[in-house]
């Protein structure tokens, strides 16, 4: 299938935002729910995908009652790799924007004792993401349009003792996204890497995170929507994490290995 001719005056790259449909992968998380609310309010049709999709029915009715939004719950398992191509092909219409939110974080200490826990983090955060983005990237490339948003993490910017399995999987995911961006930029497909710092969600429950550095899921959703509109490459949210991570990345390894961060 040849991409449509791209006449800047009749640009096909940016379909009217209110009508473009959005796929949210990992739709049960707090960040995903905030994103769904944001786009439902603006009138976008939504595909909400997660494991045990029956639990998403409450979200579907909620979005409909609050915003009159069209939403659909879909069964999706990030590590059921063989199902991914068919899952995506079955979406009709194909989504204009795909937002990959799913992620898995376990205690590092438990992962150190139990390989299965470490493996699960590597698989969900990296292999699962790479697997579902495979058919998506191909389809968007062929169409010559589309947006892929990946919620990675600042934890992927440098491996640390406190979460290196999670961090290394997210580092892989970040590299995957930058590779896809490099491949797809010329084809009219936008790839956005999102690196949240602390976010006030179920994932960080019980952690006493510093308030000025901790974002609310609603703020993360707003930042993402703005970055999609502006076709940004990488988004740190809250914004100061860009500079915090810049410092952390630049600490010489000889010193870094002795720190506990």
């Amino acid at each position: 299938m040849a991409p449509e001719t791209q006449n800047p005056k009749h640009g096909t790259q940016n379909p009217k935002p209110e009508t473009s449909s959005i796929l949210i992968l990992g739709a049960k998380s707090d960040i995903a729910r905030a994103i769904a609310h944001h786009y439902a309010q603006a009138g976008h049709p939504l595909y909400l995908a997660a494991r045990n999709a029956a639990r998403l029915e409450a979200d579907v009715s909620d979005l409909k009652i609050r915003y009159g939004a069209e939403a659909q719950a879909l069964e999706f398992d990030a590590t059921a790799y063989e199902s991914h191509a068919a899952f995506y092909a079955a979406l009709d219409p194909q989504p204009e924007i795909v937002i990959l939110v799913f992620g898995l974080l376990s205690e590092q200490e438990e992962a150190d004792k139990d390989w299965a826990k470490a493996q699960a983090m590597l698989e969900a955060n990296f292999v699962g993401a790479a697997s579902i983005l495979h058919p998506i990237a191909n389809a968007m490339e062929a169409r010559g349009q589309g947006t892929i948003v990946g919620i990675s993490s600042v934890a992927g910017d440098r491996g640390r003792a406190s979460n290196y399995h999670y961090g290394s999987a997210k580092a892989g995911f970040t590299a995957l996204l930058s590779g896809l961006r490099n491949r797809l930029a010329k084809k009219g497909v936008h790839v956005l890497t999102v690196k949240p710092g602390f976010v006030d969600t179920a994932m960080t429950e019980g952690m006493d995170t510093p308030a000025p550095l901790t974002a609310k899921p609603e703020q993360v959703a707003r930042d993402i929507a703005k970055a999609i509109k502006k076709r940004k490459n990488t988004l740190y949210t809250k914004w100061m994490w860009r500079y915090i991570m810049l410092i952390i990345k630049n600490i010489p390894e000889g010193i870094f290995k002795k720190l506990s961060l």
Partner: peptide, 9 residues
């Protein structure tokens, strides 16, 4: 608070 959906109206 995490349970904050409208279920039917």
């Amino acid at each position: 608070l995490p349970l904050n959906r409208f279920l039917a109206f």
